[in-house]
Nucleic acid binder design. Structure first.
Lengths: 187, 187
DNA sequence: AGCTCATAAGAACGAGCGTACACAGCGGTT
DNA sequence: AACCGCTGTGTACGCTCGTTCTTATGAGCT
């Protein structure tokens, strides 16, 4: 019998996609429990792989975190730039931004939490700082498709405030409030 | 020989202000090395007290952090409310806000860092969440001395974004840029 | 004076951490 | 078939952590 191992655990010798899965699992753990709780052991448990597997695929925990955040930033930044690229004019871009905020970012507690966790981890960890700065500059460049650089910067700052606010506050702002603030700032 | 121990350390039996000093030292350590590095041992070393002294004065590390952040928030919030209270009208209030941002907050890397560290620590620690929410509501109440509630909320979000931005970005915004954004938002 | 007890001190404990390393399994090359 | 070498595994080491606990000390009360 048995090509299929019944216990379903520890049956995974030769696992080509493991490296990728580890990156995804790391993001899950960070989103659910924070960077401080994202230890080798916690991630290994969540991914159902042995402890040694982590240092095998990633030289250090920082390497793993950097890979994970890089993937997350790539995803979010690409999605946002796609929105900005698709917007025909400034007004549409602002509306897309509102959608991005209320739908993609503020709508999903996961992305929100990941953003804040990244911000703070980067504040102390030089290897991660490059990732946040890349995110900031990409998002500003996306905004500049339809806004002048000065306004783009202001909008970017407001957006970050909104993200932080929504991540921590019990009563986040509504789409209408966000729309009105953006229009006053950039409308 | 020697009633006086030469090393000059450990000579502090009976130290009435120690509890207070511990709170201040904790803020220093957090500002310099982050919440993650603010361990009992690091704080004890910085305050030049024995390790056991910390759990004697504060039941747990969380208690100590909460006391420290509460003190910091009280200081900053009181200073800000004083500014808003002193402003004769809306325009003066906005200018005071610019000063508060460029001078008190963004000007001192210390306050900036403390703010962000608090934000993030609060995201995972319920005991600290009360402190941030108190800060947010106090700062909004101060703004509402001269702004309507909706605008106050928007300005508050922008300010938080500016704080985060300045804490992490290499090129923070100038006073002029901040003034212009505020006036467009609340002008 | 003597007593009492809050304060101070430092060693110790158990848990969890990142990382290193020696060994096991298996595809690919001879 | 025999081997090699990369991939994967599991254990162990050294360290730091929060917290506990025993013992010392001296200020303030009677």
């Amino acid at each position: 019998m048995s090509a299929t191992p019944a216990p379903a655990r520890r049956a995974r010798r030769y696992d080509p996609g493991r490296r990728d899965r580890l990156v995804d699992t790391t993001l899950d753990v960070v989103a659910e429990q924070g960077v401080a709780a994202a230890t080798h052991r916690a991630i290994a448990r969540a991914a159902d792989v042995p402890l040694g597997s982590l240092t095998y695929h990633f030289g250090s925990l920082t390497d793993l975190l950097a890979a994970a955040f890089t993937r997350h930033v790539d995803t979010v930044a690409a999605r946002f730039d796609e929105r900005m690229r698709a917007a025909p004019d400034r007004a549409a871009a602002l509306e897309s931004l509102v959608e991005h905020l209320t739908g993609d970012l503020l709508g999903s507690q996961r992305d929100l939490v990941l953003a804040v966790e990244l911000y703070v981890a980067a504040a102390r960890n030089p290897a991660l700082r490059a990732v946040t700065q890349d995110w900031m500059s990409r998002s500003r460049r996306s905004l500049e498709r339809h806004l002048d650089p000065v306004t783009a910067r202001e909008v970017d700052a407001l957006v970050e405030g909104l993200v932080l606010h929504s991540a921590l506050s019990t009563g986040p702002m509504t789409a209408d409030q966000i729309r009105s603030a953006l229009h006053r700032l950039a409308g």
